[in-house]
Computed example of a mutant assay.
Amino acid sequence: MLQSILLAVDRSPFSRVAAAYANYLAVELGAVLHAVHVDDTRLAEVGYYRAEGLGATMAGAASLSAHESRQGKRRNDNLLRPVRVRAMADGVSCHVRVLSGVPAREVLSVAENSDLIVLGRHGESWVAGSKRLGEVVNTVLRRATQPVLLAGTEFESFRRVLLGFDGGKAARGIMLYAMELAQRLTLPIMAVSVNANESKARHQLDIVEHFADAHGLQVTTCIGSGHPVETLLGMAQADDLLTIGAFGEGRLHQWLAGSTTATILQSAPQAVLLHR
């Protein structure tokens, strides 16, 4: 059951979209929302040479450090305030925390008691035009035991769940969450298998249909042909929730090198729900 949502925010525009999705799901699912911002302590390791030069006195550096610490705390509090205000307005139970440390490590640590992690597709260091996923997203996707929702480029209320299913362990795992969301959000669900072997694709979709029948759900299935990414994205509508297994039959090294999953994350404007 998706009862607790962890939202990790930073100062990127993608984070604001992630916050909208997290609040939307908390409202629709009646879930508790936990929002965190991690102050990256690695940034402090360079000291104040950049700001003051090598001739800075110890007293001056200490004064600057205290001042910037207070300023940083205010900025971090302001970053979480809109999340809390929106949640309160929508009747969502919301808890916010500012943490310090290595962002991905802290997010994974506090996520242990949550059922879903929500992140922006890119972080503060994102360069316009780049499709590379950020360090935090990469690490969380590799290590999280919970499903991870990566927000799309713009917020869209979901109108359908689109499940990309290859029959692997990760795909079977994400199917459970796709079905739960479809049921609790009262959404139609379409399952797609893209495989040149039509018999194998049909067998994969039979698994989905049998699971749906056992839980009183209706699912539309479709066998696709061609390149998996192009086929799935060609079927996707702007307000779909794409759901896929994060590593495609467990091939982690291929995912890191640029697999179907990575390509979808780099190309799809829609929100994507993943599970490994």
Rank of each mutant, 00 (worst) to 15 (best):
F155R: 08
F158M: 02
A201I: 03
L217K: 14
V208D: 08
L217Q: 15
A51V: 10
V118S: 05
R172K: 12
L252V: 14
G152V: 00
D115W: 01
N138R: 13
V102D: 14
V192L: 10
E124H: 10
L162V: 03
L274A: 08
P147N: 03
L119Y: 00
H37R: 11
L256Q: 15
T57W: 01
D115I: 03
V148E: 07
F155T: 01
S63H: 13
T261M: 06
E28D: 14
A178M: 01
R143H: 13
G164H: 03
N113T: 14
G173V: 02
A111G: 09
H215R: 14
A236E: 04
V32Y: 10
F14K: 06
H215E: 15
Q204V: 09
F211K: 08
V272M: 02
T260H: 07
V96H: 05
L150F: 01
L176D: 08
G258F: 01
A31G: 07
I223S: 10
E45Q: 06
M175W: 02
G91P: 02
D166I: 00
Y21K: 10
D213T: 13
A26F: 06
I223A: 10
V148Y: 02
T186C: 11
T41N: 07
G167L: 03
F211Y: 13
D40T: 10
S15P: 02
H34C: 06
S15C: 09
K169V: 13
D213S: 13
V148F: 03
A144P: 02
R160K: 14
L133R: 04
A26E: 04
E135Q: 14
Y49K: 05
L252N: 08
E124V: 14
S4C: 11
G168E: 11
T57P: 05
G123V: 01
T139I: 05
V9L: 06
P147K: 11
A19W: 00
R86N: 12
Q266P: 02
V92P: 01
A22R: 05
L187A: 08
H37S: 12
D206N: 13
L252H: 12
G226V: 01
E209S: 15
L256M: 08
S63C: 11
L176Q: 11
F14V: 04
I174S: 06
Y24Q: 02
V38T: 13
A8V: 03
R81S: 11
D77Q: 14
S63E: 14
E106P: 04
A214M: 13
V36Q: 09
L150K: 00
G53Q: 04
P228E: 07
L99F: 00
S199W: 02
I174D: 06
S259H: 03
R105L: 09
M179S: 07
A31M: 05
A238S: 15
Q146S: 12
G234T: 06
N76E: 15
H34A: 11
P269T: 06
D40V: 06
T231I: 03
E28M: 12
M235Y: 11
E52P: 00
G91Q: 06
L79D: 11
E230D: 14
H210A: 15
V192S: 01
L54M: 12
V161R: 08
R251F: 04
V85L: 12
V98N: 15
Q204P: 01
Q146G: 08
A59K: 04
S109R: 15
E28W: 01
V32D: 11
E68F: 05
L187K: 06
V192F: 00
H203Y: 08
T186Q: 13
A22T: 01
D10G: 05
